[in-house]
């Protein structure tokens, strides 16, 4: 256990260092949400006037959605780092040491969670600048960070697992492009649930991205704390299942090499 924790820590430091050294990467993942908030926020400002939308300000409605969407896309790329390590021989070098095997995965998942938390803070602050009000106060703010981080951790675990099985950047890119947008649009990130067709609403209910969006919005508005807690528990479950899948993928990788 001690080895697991200390190995996770040192490898996590490595990943954080890498992120800080490639600032363009952070910039890219932040420019997108900023564009969404400013452009969509303006473009769809009057959507809220549609009867049944049920929210007073679109920017207020949109900000949690953009936070979660950024968490989704940011962490879905996590597997690219593993593929880079495989091609550079870094993975082999580590596997030839006594490093705790699980630490190699946990460090990546933690790194994704931390990255998401930092991005979420920036997006929330920017949303507030544009007029979104966090009625849930500090607890609401922290709840949104946690929900985003849980989703991000789970998504990065899935991405890592996929990377270990396919070992190809092209495949990972294709899968993210294929699933990323549907996961977003089959959620209430951009549109209120009451205005969705029934079948989309049904799909959204099974979508972890939607759990995070709905709960973040409630945390933002400071309402339905029980629902927020329930969503957090479900996202925790999603994350644990994803981590389990990624460790199985890691085993399969080591058997196949």
């Amino acid at each position: 256990m001690k080895a697991f924790l200390s190995d996770t820590w040192f490898i996590l430091l490595r990943h954080l260092r890498t992120t800080v050294r490639i600032p363009i990467w952070i910039a890219i993942t932040l420019i997108q949400p900023v564009i969404w908030l400013t452009i969509y926020g303006q473009l769809f400002r009057r959507v809220v006037e549609i009867p049944g939308f049920g929210s007073a300000s679109y920017i207020q409605f949109l900000t949690p959605g953009v936070v979660i969407m950024t968490a989704l896309f940011g962490s879905a790329w996590s597997g690219m780092g593993i593929i880079e390590d495989l091609t550079d021989g870094v993975m082999d070098r580590m596997l030839a040491t006594p490093v705790h095997r699980a630490a190699l995965m946990s460090a990546r998942v933690l790194h994704a969670a931390i990255t998401v938390a930092v991005q979420s803070v920036i997006i929330l602050l920017f949303g507030m600048l544009l007029g979104a009000r966090i009625a849930g106060g500090l607890p609401g703010f922290l709840a949104i960070l946690s929900l985003g981080s849980l989703l991000g951790a789970g998504m990065s675990a899935l991405s890592n697992g996929l990377a270990l099985i396919t070992r190809r950047e092209e495949t990972l890119i294709a899968v993210i492009n294929f699933f990323g947008l549907p996961l977003t649009f089959l959620s209430t990130a951009f549109m209120a649930s009451d205005l969705m067709p029934g079948w989309i609403r049904a799909l959204a209910r099974a979508n972890p991205v939607n759990w995070a969006v709905v709960a973040s919005r409630d945390a933002m508005l400071g309402q339905d704390w029980l629902g927020v807690a329930k969503a957090a528990a479900m996202l925790l479950g999603f994350m644990l299942v994803s981590v389990w899948i990624s460790t199985q993928a890691f085993r399969a990788y080591r058997r196949a090499s």
């Binding site: 200390s6 190995d7 040192f10 490898i11 430091l13 490595r14 260092r17 890498t18 050294r21 490639i22 550079d88 021989g89 870094v90 082999d92 070098r93 580590m94 030839a96 040491t97 006594p98 490093v99």
Partner: peptide, 25 residues
């Protein structure tokens, strides 16, 4: 082990590479 394919972390410094390896070892 010095493998045929290098295995150094290109985003870390030489010292950081060695330090991490020492911890893991």
């Amino acid at each position: 082990l010095v493998a045929q394919a290098s295995g150094v972390d290109k985003w870390a410094t030489g010292r950081e590479n060695l330090t991490l390896q020492a911890h893991l070892m």
